[in-house]
Nucleic acid binder design. Structure first.
Length: 420
RNA sequence: GUGGGUGUAGCUCAACGGUUAGAGCACUGGGUUGUGGACCCAGUGGCUGAGGGUUCAAAUCCCUUCACUCACCCCA
């Protein structure tokens, strides 16, 4: 029989890694709540059309990376490749735009993209998504970057850079595209095959190319940054002022463009050189026209996504002080019968009590207790039962003493030890 | 989708084409009656990823396939 295993690019997350995940979620939730964000859980599965309309039908994500299938009813459904589309849908469907002036939402969960896996990239991966709707003040852009700064600081991530750029509004972008295309047309023979293709479809993405010759050509090319309209320019200037006010260090990267069609004005990436080829672990930007394009009111938006797997690779876990743990070791069947009352007594008080189901020798139980890093071990046998006592061994201090066997008195003595 | 690298015990890895495929870690038991970590002894554990071929003989060479991995494309 064939061995059962996870699908390619899908993984079990457990052990140290899931602890890191939980820690990342905990810290992120804390700052989201401090800055007035409300958590929302949205479906993993939506109609394919939602993603095609929001992400853009010529993007790689939509063209070749979605898990799409036909449902029994004949609908085309897709496992979400990103969260923004679904959150925009919820924002509209639940009428949030009518209930509040500004909506601040965040969402944590798995995303799915049918790509070839490599370092820091999986077919099922996890994102923490943060979005703001209803306001286009550059203060929002800066505030969220500051939040990232606070989160990374608390997670002990040190070597990273926040790269920012502006991709303008549809107005300045269109005029710039013409300038750009006419420049690259003159250098066409120096570009790689991919970039010649990009020239037709999405010339801005030539800036993303890693080919040495293309970089050389594009470095001398005009930048959209220098062609921004007055409004976009002012937005960007204010963003920089606010970032300085927040004390967030940034790098302006005029080459930075993003893979999703809906971005306007501010775009940014947080990168680390410790991640291999997939160096961006947080990315986001402004999307002032997306909500309207999705059939809603004219509501600007701004958001970012944290790649949890990638961030986990950079997170330093601190050893948290834990409350003491207890182990119950027993000798003989009469003593084993005390497992149930011991458990009831301890767990009710919120104290962790482990034990061996199999019993075996006291030696093996002590070894087991040690492997579980128990702080205290109770030892009970016929001898103690006869004397109405139980032995408590302090595993760190290597000392042991006798305590009353009666549960309420035992608990009293144990609590005294904790407060010592 | 395109390349490169790697597949041997639960994990990390050995084994020139030649005995019964080994070691460390982990696990289990033991090292005077009922006491942990270190140390010592013993034990469990493998269709060498799968399938075919070459050979007297294949973990080892060849082909196919699958998986993992890194990179490209793209992305968090």
């Amino acid at each position: 029989m064939e061995k059962l295993k996870t699908l390619r690019g899908f993984r079990d997350i457990f052990g140290d890694e899931i602890n890191t995940f939980q820690h990342i979620e905990h810290v992120t939730r804390k700052y989201c709540k401090l800055l007035g964000f409300a958590e929302i859980a949205i479906p993993v599965l939506e109609k394919t059309e939602l993603f095609v309309r929001s992400i853009g039908d010529t993007t790689d994500i939509v063209e070749k990376e979605m898990f799409t299938f036909i449902d029994k009813g004949g609908d085309s459904l897709t496992l979400r490749p990103e969260a923004t589309a679904g959150i925009v849908r919820a924002y509209l469907q639940e009428g949030m735009y009518a209930k509040e002036r500004v909506s601040k939402l965040f969402c944590i969960g798995p995303m799915f993209r049918h790509e070839k896996p490599q370092k820091g990239r999986f077919r099922e991966f996890h994102q923490i998504d943060v979005e703001v709707f209803g306001i286009d003040d550059p203060l929002v852009d800066a505030e969220l970057m500051w939040m990232i700064f606070l989160i990374l600081n608390e997670l002990g991530v040190d070597s990273y850079g926040i790269e920012i750029n502006s991709v303008g509004c549809p107005g300045c972008r269109e005029t710039f595209k013409k300038v750009l295309v006419s420049y690259f047309e003159t250098k066409k023979n120096e570009l790689c095959e991919d970039c010649i293709r990009r020239l037709q479809r999405n010339p801005l993405r030539i800036f993303d190319c890693k080919n040495a010759k293309c970089i050389e050509v594009s470095q001398k090319s005009p930048f959209l940054f220098d062609y921004l309209c007055v409004t976009c320019n002012e937005h960007f200037d204010m963003l920089l002022k606010h970032l300085e006010g927040f004390g967030v260090a940034y790098i302006i990267n005029k080459r930075l463009v993003r893979g999703l069609d809906y971005y306007t004005k501010t775009v940014f990436e947080v990168t680390s050189d410790k991640l291999g080829a997939q160096k961006a672990f947080i990315a986001g930007g402004r999307y002032d026209n997306l909500v309207e394009e999705m059939g809603g009111p004219s509501a600007p938006g701004y958001g970012f996504a944290i790649g949890v797997e990638r961030l986990a690779l950079l997170t330093k876990m601190k050893e948290l002080p834990k409350q003491p743990s207890y182990f119950f070791a027993y000798v003989g069947d009469r003593a084993k019968a005390y497992i149930v009352p011991m458990l009831r007594t301890f767990v009710k008080e919120g104290l962790s009590l482990s034990y061996s189901y199999e019993g075996k020798s006291l030696k093996s139980q002590m070894r087991y207790a040690d492997s579980l890093h128990a702080d205290f071990v109770f030892i009970l046998g016929d001898e103690e039962i006869g004397k109405h006592i139980i032995v408590l061994r302090d595993m760190r201090k290597k000392i042991q003493f006798e305590l009353p066997l009666e549960p309420s008195k035992l608990l009293q003595e144990v609590k005294k030890l904790i407060t010592q």
